[in-house]
Design a binder for these strands. Structure first.
Lengths: 136, 136, 136, 136
DNA sequence: GTGGTCTAGACCACT
DNA sequence: GTGGTCTAGACCACG
């Protein structure tokens, strides 16, 4: 239950993603209690300040709510969770499509590449940069 | 012929992408001369050292070659350029697919989402986080 | 604990060698903390940017790891250190042998020259270009 | 009859070495005429200024003599050539030994490593960083 | 306090 | 004129 940190991205952002992922995939459900700052810091072997910052940001995004004296909880609004999921998917999609278009890959080919990759992915778990009709 | 800089990403990385994109899309061809450090710095209104760093990185990736006293050139190996293109596309694809799977979106749906987005993209240039069948 | 800089080689490369040597000879061990940029810059009386560049390169070679906000550390993989040592020795050997062969010195003589030099080296610390059977 | 230039070393130094090597290995003999600046520049596809500088340096080292109106010649003193050879061998040896000692390799092992490498070299032309008892 | 980035300006070797 | 290196000093994000 630990994270491998990628040194290029701030740790607090990585933890945010980690928690959001747990919420979005249902590991943490609406209204669930979230581990305390101290607890999570110990578990992930990082500075409590860093965890604190993570929660601050999650609160700003209304993903998490503080109940004074009780602890922190996943937002109880189910709709909020769906919104987060859509946002995250939208961002991923946006970044992918603009990136591919900047490479000069035609829209039609993009669909094929994804379809191929998904088909491949079903037998071999490791995907390796080959993605169908990338060649000109 | 200028770049709008995004403040979150280091300028030198943004210039790298800018140049790689030019190479990959054929605006800069194998063996072409690249603008000099001073020239590009003046054009983009940034410090020559920043441009210098950009080129240093590109050279390390063997995208660019230096001929001392003469200037810098796009690598003359055409194959290297194709490799870069494939690498860049592969990275984009990888990041997209793993991200979507972490969100718990099924592979089959991913293909649909992309197909829908591409179809949409043809009339409205601005894409906004809505991406087809993201809903459960 | 200071370095005499040779004006022909860039300072940042000299510091790289200096640090690699410390690692390879065990003065710095796997996982040890490395002096901070500012610290080393002050100690060696050079600009922090120069030290920064040194560390950048060492990181690219995976000799050193950065833990953000904490400092830099010698790679924790012992095997990496052995690899570096072998690489450095191999390069030295390669350069020496090809150089000698270009001079038309026979392989058998090369061994003798080295053996003589080593034998000499034990009494006189200063070696001066005489190297045994260089004569024809 | 061309040179692959290594971008880290000034071209004029590489040509110097190239010519010295020819002299030392007997391709160019004492008193032989050396190609003219223009000729060599054309042959090596470089700027005549660069060749000019090469010859200037070689002259300063008394490896080459100018006879006005006739051209440039390899020094006629055979002893000078021997001296050069010894110098070059001595430099190579010095650099090799100090390098190996800095790596903490014992003198006795150095001899073994060289002996091994020479023995190996007789069957396989490509040497690859393995050099015998580099391991501790 | 630590590293990462950027600016400004300088000097040098090389072509 | 070109790139390579270095200094000086600044600001920022991170822990």
């Amino acid at each position: 239950m630990s994270i491998e940190f990628d040194n290029n991205l701030p740790i607090y952002l990585q933890i945010m993603q980690y928690i959001k992922r747990q919420i979005v995939t249902g590991t943490l459900k609406a209204g669930d209690k979230i581990p305390s700052v101290r607890e999570l810091a110990a578990e992930l072997q990082i500075n409590p300040n860093t965890v604190q910052r993570t929660f601050q940001e999650l609160e700003r995004e209304e993903v998490v709510e503080t109940k004074r004296g009780l602890g922190r909880y996943v937002t109880s609004e189910e709709s909020k969770i769906m919104t987060i999921k859509k946002e995250m998917a939208g961002e991923l999609l946006e970044r992918f499509l603009t990136g591919m278009q900047e490479l000069g890959i035609k829209e039609h080919d993009i669909v094929n590449i994804v379809a191929d990759a998904v088909a491949e992915g079903k037998q071999s778990s490791h995907r390796d940069g080959r993605g169908g009709t990338v060649n000109e």
